[in-house]
Amino acid sequence: MIALTGATGLLGRFLLDGLPSQIMTLGRRPLAGYAHRLWDLSGAAPELGGITTLIHAAFSHVPGRYRGGEGDDPDGFLSANLDGTRRLFDVAAKAGVQRVIFLSSRAVFDGSATGVPLTEETPPNPASLYGRVKAQAEAHLAALPLIGQSLRATGVYGPGPGHKWQALFADYLSGKPIPPRRGTEVHGADLAQACRLLLNDNGTGPFHLSDLLLDRHDLLTEVQRLTACPHAPPPPSDRPVDPLICTRLPVLGWQPGGMDLLRADLPAMLP
């Protein structure tokens, strides 16, 4: 059986839709139709008997923020997200869980100089507390006697309540000024596809998960096309962004949806 943390979060809905059946959720709130065990990052680790794969997507943070998600409580942020994750991984190893898939982040490289190729062999160099938590949790997992797979994902987008561009689209359509920006993105369905592939692979360590290098100018040009919004999109960003170099997942057959998938789902993300 697969156990999933973070099932009620922004990533959880994509994982529940894209993973095989026989999923047990671990968290504070049960979901209709799924077996559930009560658990919280800040508390004791859950009972994991009978679990063969653990997918850890839960993260405690200020709403809407990952970098800077500690708010004014860095100690609590560390206690929940680092100590709580370590407890969870340790109990998984003791319970005989065969595989742990950990949702990490490209934030493990935030301190790297521009122009450094971000391969799966590049040593982490976090600059934020968020990135530090992810890097240290990765290292803890790698030392345990099980198949530990860390998915270093870029920004995850896709339709659903509270999706990542909800406020951006509302601001643009209302005529508020939008600062230029570009970043790396991947669809939540492509995240779920990656997890499915890892269920049948015994490779360990980090796997990079990224699809688009997306400029707000291009994204909001698509929104303007769909809505006939009279406001001009922001100019293209001149900020350099180093993409994650994804080598290991494509070898397993991973094929992200690219701009076609973004355009197909964009209408469902508009207010």
Score class of each variant (00 low, 15 high):
158 G>D: 08
131 G>F: 13
187 H>R: 10
193 Q>C: 15
211 D>Q: 07
133 V>M: 14
153 A>H: 03
144 L>Y: 01
161 P>Q: 05
184 T>M: 06
127 A>M: 13
232 A>Q: 14
182 R>M: 10
119 T>H: 09
114 T>G: 13
189 A>W: 11
192 A>S: 08
208 H>Y: 14
138 E>T: 04
211 D>N: 01
190 D>W: 11
192 A>G: 05
140 H>Y: 12
136 Q>R: 13
173 L>F: 09
163 H>L: 15
180 P>K: 01
119 T>L: 14
187 H>G: 13
167 A>L: 03
223 V>T: 08
151 L>F: 06
130 Y>N: 07
197 L>H: 04
195 C>W: 08
174 S>I: 03
191 L>Y: 08
234 P>D: 14
139 A>W: 07
233 P>G: 12
143 A>F: 14
199 L>F: 02
146 L>W: 07
201 D>L: 00
145 P>Q: 06
203 G>K: 00
147 I>G: 02
126 P>C: 13
133 V>Q: 11
129 L>P: 11
185 E>L: 10
114 T>R: 09
176 K>E: 09
177 P>I: 12
166 Q>I: 01
156 V>Q: 01
213 L>H: 00
151 L>P: 04
140 H>N: 06
162 G>A: 15
170 A>T: 03
140 H>G: 07
162 G>F: 02
153 A>K: 01
187 H>N: 12
214 L>M: 10
191 L>E: 15
155 G>T: 10
170 A>C: 07
205 G>D: 06
129 L>W: 15
232 A>P: 14
124 P>V: 06
175 G>C: 07
123 P>S: 08
171 D>F: 02
229 C>I: 04
234 P>L: 09
163 H>E: 15
184 T>V: 05
218 D>F: 00
120 E>V: 02
234 P>Y: 13
215 D>A: 02
234 P>T: 02
221 T>N: 11
169 F>C: 13
207 F>P: 05
120 E>I: 00
222 E>D: 06
189 A>Y: 12
231 H>M: 13
195 C>H: 05
201 D>A: 12
131 G>R: 14
145 P>Y: 08
114 T>N: 11
153 A>E: 04
158 G>A: 05
121 E>I: 04
174 S>P: 00
210 S>Y: 03
232 A>T: 11
169 F>G: 05
164 K>E: 14
153 A>G: 14
203 G>F: 00
198 L>P: 09
169 F>P: 02
182 R>Q: 09
210 S>A: 08
152 R>H: 11
148 G>Y: 02
235 P>L: 08
156 V>D: 10
186 V>C: 13
231 H>W: 11
144 L>P: 00
230 P>A: 11
172 Y>W: 12
213 L>C: 00
171 D>T: 00
125 N>G: 10
161 P>Y: 02
151 L>K: 02
184 T>N: 11
119 T>E: 11
170 A>D: 08
173 L>A: 03
202 N>E: 11
196 R>P: 04
162 G>P: 00
228 A>Q: 12
159 P>C: 09
177 P>W: 02
231 H>K: 08
177 P>C: 02
